[in-house]
Design a protein around this nucleic acid. Structure first.
Lengths: 338, 338
DNA sequence: AAACCTTTTGAAAACGTTGTCAATCCGGAG
DNA sequence: CTCCGGATTGACAACGTTTTCAAAAGGTTT
């Protein structure tokens, strides 16, 4: 096991000082063509690669960005386990990061106080927050100097940090309007909780569709947990006996839970009850019935967030961005039966 | 923005040397109760947290483990995008890592030569390989001293590295045997390619079920890509007009693709054709038909792999482990129609 | 009170970079 | 020939830890 070459080895071989090597390799200062060639030559002969750790120490950067998922019950599993939404997001982020020479540190941190320490200990260059976090986090962040981009939050909650999200209000509206135009009147709105502004906006859009038609707005049904199959299933079970003819869900995952519960109760989708999802994850096109849903371009969102973060880290602060959504009509919705 | 306290600050405040602080905080050497108390006091007053980067430099470790996914077409997205298999795996790993004070660096690396550099530049303490990698990687790894644990590979290919996997052969057998015992004779085996030993073992088990009954073994159907919905869909389309009465898939994801293609061709599951999956991801219980599949305990596998890695890193080399699988019979399989 | 342990402590080197500053080199102007 | 200015280079400090090595302190035993 031979020792890895250090900058000193390169310097000696090239017959120059360590500083000179650093200048050449980082293209940081004018260096004569001749020594430059010698250094490059030596570096390649020794297969020299600068050590990130040592570099971090002086430069106070790490070339790493942190991707932070909310912890529920001390595990990120509870939020990301069932939903390929996160797969797309994370792989988009990882791709952008890697292409720009950054590595991705993936984590869920338990207590708000930990964030500061973690970021500082690791000298993280930037942070990507995926989902909803307690407000104290943002205050904590503001007191540090780490660039950050938030995904799926609203800036009114986060102060100065740019947020990448979608037009949730429109999404809620599109789903409701679609069902209303099919002739449904008794429509349930299934949310995972209106503490989350994303859910709030979707419900607002849902509400607007009713208001524009002068109809009274149904109050929401609240699931007990995050976007999980079982949350949907439990509500579906409850709604199976009700007079609702349509159900708007705020994720595809909960919609699948709902559909399954209805099926088990002998209620057919879409013949007896229509169901819409939200996200348009890959599988939603392949189930039977395939899912009518509000499509958001997840990878686009992840890519944009990562790119904005990197821009910000380079000193060009980026603004937030809100992406459009559209309705994808598939098999899970139909006019109510007569 | 006040400067973060360093070990020097603590030392000065406690009236001792930096070394003494290090001794106390790392519990590395006997220190008198009195100075110990002073140091602890000072450290807590200053809210001192050691800097990982600086520590890495002397200790040559980073407190990070790398989780490596295969890159297909320069993106990890193509392998992990649609399948919550990876969600469970990654969240299990992250949990164990975090509980042991490690952070998780997530990546897909393009060329084998990059691994070495990446591991050394980052001073990674351990590596977790998720899936199949070119053999040259293992040779490359052997020449380094990084502990590593492989997931979903077979040790005969990897030399000395411990591997955490499941009894794939049994899985293949159980699926085939289940269908055979239902009375199916013309059964397709859908694989993503027999270059992957995991697939090979599953096919071996499939084969054995036929041999034990003295039946001739069908040759496998090979999908063009990794485990993707569309791979399944394309093969399903092709098989829809065939005389097969049952299809064994090597992932739930491909099974869903198959089922959808059959549905679109007017072939009913399970009435006309039975389909089995592999993995038992969460959603498989919620689709209609719900999926008969070979269950593996994914989080258990991820947890075990991470724990073994950490054990190995602590100097107690761990052996590989093979977990059991079992058949979960749901709605997607039934006897062939008369 | 000297000699000798044993325990406890601290000064300084090391880790591998980058950045600061001063020194050297070179050619040309005076 | 001296002086000057610009271009190029190198010595050394700095980053924040851990570790090595030796010294100091505190008892015991003679």
């Amino acid at each position: 096991m031979k020792r890895r070459a250090t900058i000193k080895d390169v310097a000696e071989r090239a017959g120059v000082s360590k500083a000179a090597v650093s200048y050449v390799l980082n293209d940081i200062r004018k260096v004569s063509a001749e020594t430059k060639a010698r250094v490059l030559q030596a570096a390649s002969e020794l297969d020299y690669q600068p050590d990130f750790t040592a570099r971090s120490l002086t430069k106070r950067t790490s070339n790493m960005i942190g991707v932070i998922l909310p912890l529920v019950d001390a595990s990120i599993a509870n939020v990301m386990q069932e939903n390929t939404y996160y797969n797309e997001m994370i792989s988009a982020i990882e791709k952008v990061a890697r292409e720009n020479g950054f590595d991705v540190l993936l984590t869920g941190l338990a207590r708000p106080e930990e964030y500061r320490n973690w970021v500082q200990k690791r000298r993280l260059d930037g942070l990507l927050f995926l989902g909803l976090f307690p407000a104290s986090i943002y205050a904590e962040m503001r007191s540090m100097e780490v660039p950050a981009v938030l995904i799926d939050t609203y800036e009114e909650h986060t102060g100065k940090y740019p947020s990448v999200n979608i037009n949730d209000e429109k999404g809620g509206f599109l789903a409701a309007e679609h069902l209303l135009s099919l002739g449904h009147e008794n429509i349930a709105f299934l949310t995972t909780g209106l503490e989350n502004p994303v859910e709030v906006h979707r419900y607002k859009g849902f509400t607007r569709a009713f208001q524009e038609r002068g109809m009274t707005v149904p109050s929401p049904e609240t699931a007990e947990t995050t976007h999980r199959l079982e949350s949907g299933w439990m509500i579906g079970k409850k709604l199976a006996g009700s007079s609702r003819t349509a159900i708007v869900c705020t994720s595809d995952i909960t919609a699948f839970g709902v559909i399954r519960a209805l099926y088990e109760a002998g209620v057919r989708v879409p013949e007896d009850v229509s169901v819409t999802g939200f996200d348009d994850i890959h599988i939603s096109r392949y189930t039977t019935p395939s899912l009518t849903t509000v499509r958001q371009h997840i990878m686009q969102k992840g890519t944009a967030a990562a790119e904005k973060l990197i821009e910000t880290m380079k000193g060009h602060p980026a603004a937030g961005e809100t992406f459009d959504v559209k309705l994808v009509i598939r098999e899970s919705t139909a006019p109510p039966k007569q």
